[in-house]
Amino acid sequence: MKKMLPWLVSILLAITLIAIVAIILLNSLFDDSGKKETTEPVKVETLSADERVEVTSELKDIKRNLLDNDYILIASFAFQLDSKKSKEEFEKIKDILIRPIINSVIADTTVEQLNGSKGQDMLASKILNLINQKLPEKQKLIKVEITNFMMSPI
């Protein structure tokens, strides 16, 4: 019995410490009393067809091999910008700045990554993020839509 006493004390201490840590973690995770609800509902602004055309630019028929080199992607994109002036500036640079970005994204993409709507959403969001990094601060790209998408083996 004397040999087991230190082991029993150690086990009881370990269990007690684990229980105390678990209670503290549960209280901190589920304690909402210190948090105040400060979020306001977001108002979504819908654009009319004419307003949407004024701020949307198109880039048609981009043809590029995928990373697999056995497949080709033919796609067209619509870019919605934050203002009419941004669209005018975007039109000037879309062939020299935007097309190379899209080509590099497509070149690094596999067929499996593009399958289904999730793959197309991933492609559009990746392009949106990369383009927004390259645009001047006064311009902002809001949305990238894939208007034409055809993937075919060569």
Rank of each mutant, 00 (worst) to 15 (best):
I102W: 03
L135S: 04
V105W: 01
D61N: 10
I11C: 10
Q80L: 13
N27C: 05
K94R: 14
G116W: 02
K85Q: 13
I23P: 03
T109L: 04
S76T: 06
T56W: 02
I11R: 02
E145N: 15
K143E: 15
M4T: 10
E45G: 05
V53I: 12
K43T: 12
I72N: 09
M1K: 10
S57F: 01
G116A: 06
L97C: 05
I15S: 14
T110P: 05
V42N: 11
E91Y: 00
S28G: 12
K2A: 15
Y71I: 06
N148P: 00
M122S: 11
K35S: 10
K85G: 13
L29W: 12
V21Q: 10
A78M: 00
K134G: 05
T16M: 15
N27P: 00
S104H: 11
S117N: 15
N103R: 09
A22P: 03
Q139P: 04
M151G: 00
I11V: 12
V55M: 08
L73S: 08
N27M: 10
V42Y: 11
L73I: 15
L5Q: 09
I142C: 01
T39F: 09
F30R: 01
V9N: 00
R64N: 12
E89H: 11
Q80G: 01
E88H: 06
E89F: 11
I101Q: 03
D32V: 09
K85M: 09
L114G: 02
I131P: 00
S125C: 06
L17H: 04
P136Q: 11
T109Y: 08
S10W: 12
L130V: 01
D68R: 08
K2Y: 11
E89V: 06
S83Q: 02
I20Q: 12
